[in-house]
């Protein structure tokens, strides 16, 4: 394998991955970063639903499809509890956001 002559390898070593990850937006729907998640887990918010109720992660239009697994992994990493033992939270209907006029009772009446 040929060695590369540039200094990319050293630069690579200098990168602080932990810190870089902090800025990553974990929940794109609600724009919540890894840093916020990492701040609250040690304070005892170490189930998905607690973080959801505190930071709104999982309350966006995708209902946590984008962020649930990443967050469960992070809880597991920080608490040492295996992912399968962390309460993973409730998934609520509807499965996909749906225009309210499509479900609305057609009578259009109050009753």
């Amino acid at each position: 394998m040929s060695e590369c002559n540039c200094s990319c390898d050293e630069n690579f070593k200098e990168l602080d991955f932990e810190k870089m990850e902090d800025d990553i937006i974990v929940c794109r729907c609600e724009e919540i970063t890894m840093k916020e998640i990492r701040e609250w887990i040690p304070k005892g918010y170490d189930t998905f639903d607690e973080l959801k109720r505190l930071l709104r992660v999982g309350m966006g239009p995708c209902q946590g499809r984008g962020c649930r697994d990443i967050i469960l992994r992070e809880i597991s990493k920080m608490t040492g509890v295996p992912v399968c033992d962390i309460p993973s939270g409730t998934i609520r209907p509807p499965v996909k956001p749906i225009k309210s006029s499509l479900t609305a009772s057609k009578g259009g009446e109050y009753e």
């Binding site: 225009k99 006029s101 479900t103 609305a104 259009g108 009446e109």
Partner: peptide, 30 residues
């Protein structure tokens, strides 16, 4: 538990009281 009857009824009322909600999507019921 969450029931269809509620969703149907409530979105109906919402659209009627605030017609501009017709195009707005429901994300969650509980």
């Amino acid at each position: 538990g969450d029931c269809w009857n509620f969703l149907e009824h409530m979105t109906g009322v919402m659209n009627k009281v605030l017609p501009r909600t017709k195009g707005i999507r429901v994300v969650r019921q509980w």
